[in-house]
């Protein structure tokens, strides 16, 4: 039982760490602070924010306007940025408010905001059975919708990490579906050049998604 002998006074040897001790202050100073670079916002985050917005507002025009407003609001309140969130997180937070404001504005007329249940209009149906209104336990589209939105954002943030030209070619080809010929004309490159860029972009994207998604 000798091992259990408690030696009094040993605990005094431990270093006392107060929450405001000097070591902690130094830690904070050494932490890399996030900085805002508004010049790069459009290139880096426009598509990401646009995807986020379009998941909540299906109207592309409105979504685009909200992204624009987000950048403007961000620029206006840049001096209030404390640097404890990453740039993109901070912008998303602004966009979230903008989306909520948008719905508030469209619902501002009294009564519009209330949820109307659309009961089955067929009054001559055999009966209003609760079973008919119960959620289908085998339905999977709600979950997969959420998952697909997250996947979209993951892909967008991976695209943002690509070199500018590769990202441009990949988005034009894959997302906007522009034909090879048109891209070559617009960017003044030849087709084999384009395919090499597509190849590099796809390889890098797959690596990035393997790290962040799977």
């Amino acid at each position: 039982m000798a091992a259990l002998n408690y030696i009094t006074g040993n605990e005094k040897k431990l270093k006392v760490i107060k929450s405001n001790s000097i070591t902690f202050d130094n830690d904070k100073k050494r932490m890399p602070e996030h900085q805002l670079m508004p010049d790069k916002w459009v290139d880096l985050y426009a598509d990401y924010l646009f995807n986020y917005a379009i998941g909540r507002i299906s109207d592309a025009e409105v979504a685009k306007d909200l992204v624009q407003e987000t950048f403007m609001a961000g620029l206006k309140s840049a001096k209030n940025y404390k640097g404890d969130a990453a740039e993109r997180t901070w912008l998303i937070a602004i966009l979230k408010r903008k989306v909520i404001d948008h719905y508030r504005k469209t619902n501002s007329k009294k009564g519009k905001a209330e949820v109307r249940m659309n009961y089955s209009s067929q009054t001559d149906a055999e009966g209003d059975w609760l079973e008919e209104q119960v959620a289908d336990p085998f339905s999977s589209f709600e979950n997969s919708d959420i998952e697909n939105e997250e996947l979209g954002l993951a892909i967008q943030s991976c695209i943002a990490k690509l070199p500018k030209k590769q990202a441009l070619v990949f988005t034009m080809k894959t997302i906007q579906g522009v034909s090879t010929e048109d891209i070559c004309n617009e960017l003044d490159i030849n087709p084999s050049n384009l395919w090499v860029m597509i190849h590099r972009a796809r390889t890098a994207l797959m690596d990035c998604l393997n790290q962040n998604w799977f």
């Binding site: 290139d43 592309a60 979504a63 996947l151 441009l168």
Partner: peptide, 22 residues
Amino acid sequence: LCQKADLHSLTEQEKLKMKQIL
């Protein structure tokens, strides 16, 4: 994956316009 995610993006002209406004 790209098809499933239903990606959207802004065109270069739209981005350019945004930059000009900013």
